[in-house]
Design a protein around this nucleic acid. Structure first.
Lengths: 123, 123
DNA sequence: GTAAAACCTGACGTTGACGTCAGCTGCAAG
DNA sequence: CTTGCAGCTGACGTCAACGTCAGGTTTTAC
C-alpha cells in the first residue's frame, strides 16, 4: 500500500504520515522507485497513533510507549510512564467533566431565563 | 490588588494576565502611576478563564461566552455556541475515556506478564 | 509516448498561549 | 537619596504537529 491509500484509509494527511515516519512512529519499506510501501497493519497503527495524540501524548512519549502498547511487554521505566500518562488522562477527564458541568449549568440558566434578543439586524 | 498579587492568588503568570487583558478577557483599572488595579472578583474570573482554556476553548470563544457564563443571559447565537462547545467537550471526554481504557488494558497486560529487565546499566 | 496523478525531499509558514528580554518608570524602606 | 523590587510597553522567541510550496521523479492511464 502506498502513502495516499494509507492516508485515505487511516483518515490522516499524507504530510502527517511522513511526519510520523520522521518521528520514528511509523516505518515503511521502499519500492524500487523509492516510494513508501506500507503493510496492512499500518492502518491500525496509524489509528492508534492518532488516538494517543488525541489523548494529549507527545510524539516523544508515543515513541517510548508504542512498543509496549503493541507487545504488552514493558520495563519498569515504561510501566511507570504508562501509569503517569494514564493518570494524566484521568485528571484531564476530570477537568473536562467539571468544565462541561459548568457549561451545562449555564445552558440550563439561559434556557430557564429565555433567550435574549439584542443583536444588530441582518443588513 | 496589583498584578503580582493577582498572579499569585490565581496561580497564573503575570504575563498571562497581561495577555488576557490584551485578549479582552480581563479588565483592570489603572492607578495614578499607570499600574493595573484589580478588584477582588478578578481572582475567580481568572480561574474561570483558566478552566475554559483547559477545556480547550480558544480565547476568541471565551470572549464570546464569558458574558453569558457570568450573567446567565445569552442570545440565540451565544446559546448555540454554548451547546456546540459543551458537545465538543463531551466528545473529547469520550475520546480520552477510550484512550484511558486502552492504557489501562496495556498496564494490566504488562503487570500480568511481569516487568521486563532489558536496560543498560547505570554507568 | 505522453500527460496526468501520485510521490519524493527539503525547507519555510502557521497557530496560540504564553516566555523572555530590553529599557524605562513607580513606589516603599532605610 | 538611593537601592531595589514591582510594574510598564513593545517586540521577538518557543514549541508541536503539521500545512504548503518548490522543483524534481515515478507510476498509471490512454
Amino acid at each position: 500500500m502506498r502513502i495516499g491509500e494509507l492516508a485515505r484509509r487511516s483518515g490522516v494527511s499524507v504530510r502527517a504520515l511522513r511526519y510520523y515516519e520522521e518521528q520514528k512512529l511509523l516505518e515503511s519499506a521502499r519500492t524500487s522507485g523509492n516510494q513508501r510501501d506500507y503493510l496492512e497493519g499500518a492502518v491500525s497503527r496509524v489509528q492508534l497513533i492518532q488516538q494517543l495524540y488525541a489523548a494529549g501524548l507527545s510524539s516523544g512519549t508515543i515513541v517510548d510507549l508504542l512498543p509496549c502498547v503493541t507487545t504488552g511487554l514493558a520495563t519498569q521505566e515504561m510501566l511507570d510512564q504508562l501509569v503517569t500518562e494514564r493518570d494524566r488522562i484521568a485528571t484531564r477527564i476530570d477537568e473536562l467533566g467539571q468544565a462541561k458541568q459548568k457549561l451545562d449549568r449555564v445552558i440550563e440558566q439561559v434556557v430557564a431565563a429565555g433567550v435574549v434578543t439584542g443583536d444588530s439586524p441582518t443588513p
